[in-house]
């Protein structure tokens, strides 16, 4: 029963991932794609969480946190790049 519900949940999540991938492919603009990437990241967090429950293991909790962190960093890097053309800036006064 619980397993079934979990499966249903994961089904929804996979659908969302597919949707995000669709957005990633379709675009049309680059920020759209970055957003889609971010969304994939967020959804993956949920997937890992559900898998943890399904497997009844806490081994993947680090992964959950890490995806959060990294998708944040990734998104920021992309945003930076889009905005400024450079990812890491030199001091602006120069």
């Amino acid at each position: 029963m619980i397993y079934t519900i979990l499966l249903i949940s994961i089904f929804f999540l996979v659908l969302s991932i597919i949707a995000a991938v669709y957005r990633l492919i379709k675009g049309p603009s680059i920020p759209d794609k970055v957003q889609a990437l971010d969304a994939i990241g967020i959804n993956l967090i949920a997937v890992v969480a559900i898998i943890s429950v399904m497997l009844r293991t806490t081994a993947f909790f680090e992964v959950i946190l890490l995806i959060g962190i990294l998708s944040f960093i990734g998104t920021i890097a992309f945003a930076r790049y889009l905005e400024r053309g450079v990812v890491i800036e030199h001091k602006r006064s120069k």
């Binding site: 970055v34 890992v48 081994a59 993947f60 890490l66």
Partner: peptide, 29 residues
């Protein structure tokens, strides 16, 4: 090229999920 990079990133994340599915937490990290 940006699309390509974003897609590679997405691919990487999904591969990580496969590592999770295959019980490899260290790898996923």
């Amino acid at each position: 090229r940006l699309t390509a990079i974003i897609a590679v990133g997405a691919l990487g994340y999904l591969v990580a999920i496969f590592f999770v599915l295959f019980r490899a937490p260290d790898l996923a990290l």
